[in-house]
Simulated scan of single mutants.
Amino acid sequence: MPRTLPVFTAFWTRRPLLLAVVLMGCASACTQQQGRDIAKQFSNGKPDEFFQTSVDRMATLGMRDNLQSLYLLMNKLYLRNPNQWRQSGYPDVVSAAREIRKAIENRQPLPALGDRRDLAALSYSLSPEFRGDRVGAFIYAIGSMLVTAHGGRTQFYISDSINPQFVNNAARNIEKATWLLSQRQDANGVLLLFSNEISEEGSNLSFAVEFGKIVARLDLLTQMLDERYRRIGLNYAQSLLLMNFLPVQ
């Protein structure tokens, strides 16, 4: 027993040192991993991302996803209403869809709608008086409205501003348009466009689900924008309260 006591004592004496070495090794490994993760993020990023705040980046990604959802809805509507693309004047459905996308993203007018854009185009596309590719007109109208609500842009940077009220209004307009899409009929009582379906054979609510995703993204962006501008106002109010000068660089 007397011969093992010094060894036991020495072990416990050196234990804090061993623990410190282990912790330092773990911290070093974590730091190296974090460094590799940061380097990977920078390498995967685009140069223009350096000119975007987190909200700008979120708005850009949200717009990209909303347009993709809209194009998915367009393809689904063409499948449910195959007679519509034939009225577009294009040789096939792929060509018709491509031209609608181009018109939305380049902010070009759609011949079937004349000079109508945004809300005027949306109302006209769901009216019995409209003659032409109703699917293309409807999708174009919503896409045009989305871009307009975001200040006429699809990508956003530090110098850009987005009005949260307009984004919120766009979300509410899409909710109304979704309801109108399922209700509007022609003089014979036939739906102008077939979308969601609930019957004895089954249910297809995929249109409502995809429109719901767009609305959810718009509502989230609205909240983020409200908080951003609220914080700007609070920071300014705090600087006045504390009599601090505001930074100029």
Rank of each mutant, 00 (worst) to 15 (best):
N106Q: 13
P164A: 05
R86H: 07
M243G: 05
S88D: 03
H150Y: 10
Q84V: 03
Q108E: 15
L72H: 03
R116N: 09
P247C: 02
D118Q: 05
V135Y: 00
A149F: 08
T31E: 12
M243L: 08
R64W: 08
A121Q: 07
Q108T: 01
Y78W: 07
L193G: 05
I214Q: 15
G25C: 02
Q87Y: 04
G212D: 06
R107M: 02
G202L: 08
T178H: 09
A96H: 04
H150P: 04
S182D: 06
F138N: 01
M24P: 00
W179N: 03
I100T: 09
R172Q: 12
E175F: 11
E49D: 11
D56C: 07
R131T: 03
Q183R: 09
A112E: 04
A97H: 13
L240S: 07
L72W: 03
S125L: 00
Q32W: 10
N204F: 10
P164M: 11
S182V: 05
R228K: 13
R131A: 12
T53M: 02
G35C: 04
L61S: 11
P16L: 09
E201V: 14
R134M: 00
I104V: 11
F194V: 04
E99M: 10
D37C: 02
D226K: 07
K102I: 04
L234Y: 13
R184Y: 01
N173S: 13
G143S: 10
T53D: 14
K102D: 06
M74S: 03
Q84I: 00
G151Q: 06
L146C: 10
A216Y: 09
N75P: 05
A27F: 13
L146S: 13
N81V: 01
T60Y: 10
P16T: 01
Q249D: 13
R153N: 09
V135N: 02
V55S: 10
T53W: 01
A97G: 12
A170Q: 12
R86K: 15
L192G: 03
A149P: 03
L242C: 05
Q165E: 14
Q108D: 14
T4K: 06
D160V: 00
N81C: 00
R57V: 00
S69F: 11
R15W: 15
S88C: 06
V167E: 11
R3W: 09
Y71W: 09
L234N: 11
F11Y: 14
N163D: 15
L192M: 07
R217V: 00
S28T: 06
K76I: 03
P128E: 03
Y229I: 04
R15Y: 10
S43P: 03
M224I: 00
Q185C: 01
N168S: 14
D219Q: 12
L234D: 11
G152S: 13
A96E: 15
S195W: 00
E99A: 08
N81H: 09
L19A: 15
F207E: 01
L225Y: 08
A103T: 05
E200M: 05
L205A: 07
Y236C: 00
T222M: 02
Y229T: 02
V215R: 11
T53V: 04
T9N: 09
F130H: 01
R231W: 12
S125A: 15
F207L: 10
Q34G: 06
N188E: 08
M24A: 15
R14E: 04
P109A: 05
L218R: 13
L180N: 13
F138W: 07
S123G: 05
L221R: 05
D56N: 14
A96S: 14
